[in-house]
Computed example of a mutant assay.
Amino acid sequence: MNVAGAELWLLAEKAIYWPAERALLVADAHFGKAAVYRALGQPVPHGTTASNLALLDRLLARHDCRELIFLGDFLHGPAAQGSATLEAVAAWRAGHPGLRIILIRGNHDHHAGDPPASLAMEVANEPMLRGPLALRHEPAPHPTHHVLAGHLHPVYLLTGRGRQRLRLPCYCLGEQVTLLPAFGAFTGGFAVQRKPGMRLVLAAPEGVFALP
Rank of each mutant, 00 (worst) to 15 (best):
P45H: 08
P45C: 08
H46N: 08
H46S: 13
H46V: 12
G47M: 04
T48N: 06
A50G: 08
A50P: 01
N52W: 01
A54N: 10
L55S: 14
D57Y: 04
D57I: 02
D57Q: 14
R58N: 11
R58W: 03
R58K: 12
L60N: 01
A61D: 13
C65Q: 00
C65E: 00
C65L: 05
R66A: 14
R66P: 01
E67L: 07
L68Q: 03
F70M: 06
L71M: 06
G72S: 09
D73Y: 02
D73I: 01
F74L: 14
F74V: 07
F74H: 09
L75S: 01
L75H: 11
L75M: 13
H76E: 13
H76I: 09
H76S: 10
H76A: 09
G77Y: 02
P78Q: 09
P78F: 11
P78D: 11
P78T: 10
A79E: 15
A79K: 10
A80G: 15
L86H: 05
V89K: 00
V89D: 00
W92K: 05
W92G: 02
R93Q: 06
G95T: 10
H96F: 02
G98S: 12
L99Q: 05
L99F: 05
R100Y: 05
R100S: 12
I101W: 00
I102Y: 00
L103R: 08
L103W: 07
G106A: 11
G106Y: 05
H111D: 11
H111T: 13
A112E: 08
A112G: 11
P116A: 09
P116T: 05
S118L: 14
L119F: 05
A120W: 01
A120L: 06
M121A: 07
E122T: 13
V123N: 07
V123C: 14
A124M: 14
A124W: 12
A124R: 15
N125E: 15
N125A: 15
E126C: 06
M128G: 02
R130P: 01
G131C: 04
L135I: 07
R136K: 13
R136M: 15
H137C: 06
E138H: 13
E138M: 12
P139C: 10
P139W: 01
A140V: 15
